[in-house]
Write a protein that binds this DNA or RNA. Structure first.
Length: 572
RNA sequence: GUCCGGUUCGUCUAGGGGUUAGGACACCGCCCUUUCACGGCGGCAACACGGGUUCAAAUCCCGUACCGGAUACCA
C-alpha cells in the first residue's frame, strides 16, 4: 500500500516552527517512500479558526515548498459525516447520550483549571460514573425526542464490569507500536468517555480526525508528541468504527530556551514562519535547519539539499527528546537561533548563484533597487559566469596574478554580468537576503545611508581624509580616467586595460592598487587609513570585500562622485 | 494528583558495554588582511544523581531528581 500522510494544522494562528517541522517530516516521509503528502485544515473549532490564519499557514507552507499532492481538505466540510459516525456508534451502543448540562466554560486559564480539577480528584477518578452511561435506549431516545440537549460520548469499555467491551480488546488497554517512541500502552481506565459530538451538534477533534484520516486513507500519522494520549482515544474510536488504524509516529516537541512551552502568545513572531520569510531567510536554509531539530541521519554533516533530506530521511532517525529552539530574547543581533542564522549565511554564500539570483532580485525589487538591465530581454537570471570564489582565492595566493577569466569577463557597469559578479562578490559576508538591500545598498543605488560607527571609526578619526579623499578622486581621474595614462606600461597582457563602453576602461584592481599605494606613500600614511576611509565613503559601511574589488565594482564615475561628496562628513 | 515520555558540551547532535566521548553553532585566541560578521588553525566545554549487572557501564536494569506532554462539550 502506498504511503499517504497528512499535515493537519488548525487555523488558529500563523504557521509556527513546530508545525512547520511536522509538515517537513511528513513531506520528507512521503517523498522518501514515494507516497502522497496531503493537507487538511482542522477548522472544527469555528470560534477560534480564522480565514486569515488559514492563509498565513498556506503562505508559510508555500514558502517552504511543501505543496500538497491532492486537494486541501477542510475538516468543517465533513461535519455531516462526523455526525453520522457519532450517530452510528450511538445506534450500535458504543456511544451514549450525556444529558449533563454543559459546564460553563472556564475563561482565561483553561489548562490550569483542568489541572486543578484533576489534582483534587486525586487517585479517586472514575471515568465510568456518568449517570447517563447506562440509561436505557428508550429513555435516552425519549429525552432526546423531547428536545433535551445532550452530548454524545464514546462508551469506553469498563474493565470492572467487563461489559460493553465486545468491540474492544480484552487486554483492557489500548496499545500501539509508535514508530518513534516504541510500544505505547494505556489502560482503558485512564481514558475518559470522551465527547464525540458536542450538545450543539459540533463534532469534536478526536472524532473528526479519525473519520477524516479514514476517509483520506491515511496510512501514517506523523504529528507532535502532545498527541500521544489522543492517539489512545483515537484508537478506541477506530475500534468502535471497526477500522484498522494507521501507523503512528510522534515527534518530540520544540521548546523555548527555558525548556518551557514555545507559544505564539509568549514568544510572538520569532516562532512564525512568515517572520523568517520576511527577514530574508532562504527557504532551503530554514528547511535544512528545521530538519536537524529532532532528526539526524547519524552522520557528521549539517548541510543537506532537499534531495539529500528526502533520500536520508527515516523515522528511525527521529529523536525521543525535545529540542530547544535557542533564540535570544532582547538581542537584536541574535533574535533567532544562532544556528539558523549561520545556516542561512552559509546558504547565501555557497548556494549556486543561479538559485540565489532570483531571491536577490526579489529583495532588490521590494526595495526599488532593481533595474531591468540586470536581466535584459527577459533573460533568466542564470549566468554563464560561475562563482569566482575559488578564483579569488587563487588570485590572492598566486602572487596577485589575476586569473585570465576575470580580466576577460570584466563586465560593463550596471549590466547583467556586472550584477551577477557583484552579488557573488558581496554575498560572502551576508547573513540574510535583507543584507543585499541594506548593507549592500550602495552597490545598487546612490541613495544609501552611512553607518555612524563606520563614519566615526574610519573618517572622523582622520580629519585629513576630508582633503585627501577628494584628492584621491582627482588622481584616479587623471591616471585612470578616459584621457589618463595607465600607471603601468609594463603590465602583463591580461592586465592591460580593456576597451569598454564604460568610461573607466583603466579602472580595475591592479591599476587602482598602484594609484592608491602611491597616494598613501606620498601622504605618509598607512594604506588602511585611505582604504577604510574610501570604503566608508563608497559603501556607507565598515565591512565588505577587498577594497580593490569595491572600487572596481562601484566603477570610476561613482567612485569619483562618492569620494568627493561631503555628505558623510556631516554625520556624527 | 494521575498517566505517559525524556535526560551526552550553553544550544543542535554523533556514539549505545572497552572511544583521548566525535561534529556543528555560539564563545575565546592566533593567522591572513586595507576593514570585516569571509577564510585557515587552535582552545574552552557534556554522558543528571544513586544503586545494581559485568573483568569492564555514557551505553543494560532498578530507583531518585529534574524537565516536558496529556488529563476540555479546544485542536
Amino acid at each position: 500500500m502506498t504511503v499517504r500522510v497528512r499535515f493537519a494544522p488548525s487555523p488558529t494562528g500563523y504557521l509556527h516552527i513546530g508545525s512547520a517541522r511536522t509538515a517537513l517530516f511528513n513531506y520528507l516521509y512521503a517523498r522518501h517512500t514515494g507516497g502522497k503528502f496531503l493537507l487538511r485544515i482542522e477548522d472544527t473549532d469555528l470560534a477560534r479558526s480564522t480565514e486569515e490564519s488559514t492563509r498565513s499557514i498556506l503562505d508559510g507552507l508555500k514558502w517552504l515548498g511543501f505543496a500538497p499532492d491532492e486537494e486541501i481538505v477542510f475538516q468543517s466540510d465533513n461535519a455531516d459525516k462526523h455526525r453520522e459516525a457519532a450517530r452510528r456508534l450511538l445506534a450500535e451502543g458504543k456511544a451514549y447520550r450525556d444529558f449533563t448540562p454543559k459546564a460553563e466554560p472556564t475563561d482565561a486559564n483553561v489548562k490550569e483549571a483542568i489541572k486543578e480539577r484533576a489534582r483534587q480528584q486525586g487517585g479517586e477518578k472514575n471515568f465510568r460514573d456518568n449517570p447517563y452511561r447506562e440509561l436505557s435506549g428508550e429513555e435516552s431516545d425519549a429525552r432526546a425526542a423531547a428536545g433535551e440537549p445532550f452530548a454524545i460520548r464514546l462508551k469506553v469499555p469498563d474493565v470492572r464490569t467487563g461489559s460493553d467491551s465486545d468491540w474492544a480488546l480484552p487486554t483492557g488497554k489500548t496499545s500501539f507500536e509508535d514508530q518513534v517512541y516504541g510500544l505505547q500502552e494505556r489502560d482503558y481506565a485512564e481514558t475518559e468517555d470522551l465527547v464525540l459530538l458536542r450538545s450543539d451538534g459540533h463534532p469534536l477533534y478526536n472524532l473528526a480526525v479519525v473519520c477524516d484520516d479514514i476517509e483520506m486513507q491515511i496510512t501514517d500519522v506523523i504529528r507532535g508528541q502532545d498527541h500521544l494520549t489522543n492517539t489512545h482515544k483515537q484508537l478506541l474510536i477506530y475500534m468502535a468504527l471497526g477500522v484498522e488504524p494507521p501507523r503512528f509516529s510522534h515527534l518530540p516537541l520544540i521548546m523555548a530556551p527555558n525548556k518551557g512551552k514555545l507559544s505564539k502568545r509568549k514568544h510572538g513572531e520569532v516562532v512564525s514562519m512568515t517572520t523568517y520569510r520576511d527577514a530574508g531567510f532562504v527557504a532551503a536554509a530554514f528547511r535544512n535547519f528545521l530538519a536537524l531539530l529532532g532528526w539526524s541521519a547519524g552522520e557528521e554533516k549539517e548541510i543537506y539539499s532537499l534531495d539529500e533530506l528526502i533520500k536520508k530521511f527515516s523515522l528511525e532517525g527521529i529523536h525521543r527528546s525535545n529540542a530547544v529552539f535557542n533564540f535570544h530574547e532582547g538581542d537584536p543581533k541574535r533574535w533567532t537561533d544562532d544556528k539558523a542564522i549561520w545556516m542561512n549565511a552559509e546558504y547565501i554564500r555557497t548556494m549556486p548563484l543561479a538559485d540565489l539570483l532570483p531571491l536577490v532580485k526579489n529583495e532588490l525589487k521590494a526595495n526599488k533597487l532593481w533595474r531591468e538591465e540586470y536581466a535584459p530581454d527577459g533573460r533568466a537570471l542564470v549566468t554563464s559566469i560561475s562563482s569566482t570564489k575559488s578564483q579569488e582565492f587563487e588570485a590572492t595566493t598566486e602572487m596577485g596574478e589575476r586569473p585570465e577569466s576575470i580580466a576577460i569577463d570584466r563586465p560593463t557597469h550596471g549590466s547583467h554580468d556586472w550584477f551577477v559578479r557583484t552579488v557573488d562578490l558581496i554575498r560572502a559576508r551576508f547573513f540574510t537576503l535583507k543584507d543585499f538591500s541594506t548593507q549592500g545598498r550602495a552597490y545598487f543605488s546612490e541613495d544609501f545611508d552611512f553607518d555612524a560607527a563606520a563614519v566615526a571609526k574610519n573618517l572622523a578619526k582622520f580629519p585629513e581624509l576630508q582633503e585627501w579623499l577628494p584628492e584621491l578622486a582627482g588622481r584616479f581621474e587623471a591616471e585612470l580616467g578616459e584621457l589618463g595614462v595607465a600607471g603601468g606600461e609594463d603590465l602583463p597582457a591580461d592586465k592591460l586595460p580593456l576597451t569598454d563602453a564604460c568610461c573607466a576602461d583603466r579602472f580595475f584592481e591592479a591599476n587602482i592598487e598602484t594609484v592608491v599605494k602611491a597616494f598613501a606613500e606620498e601622504k605618509g600614511t598607512k594604506l588602511g587609513v585611505i582604504m577604510n576611509g574610501a570604503r566608508t565613503l563608497l559603501t556607507g559601511v565598515a565591512v565588505g570585500p577587498s577594497m580593490l574589488s569595491v572600487f572596481e565594482t562601484i566603477g570610476l564615475e561613482r567612485t569619483l562622485m562618492r569620494l568627493r561628496s561631503k555628505v558623510a562628513w556631516n554625520i556624527q
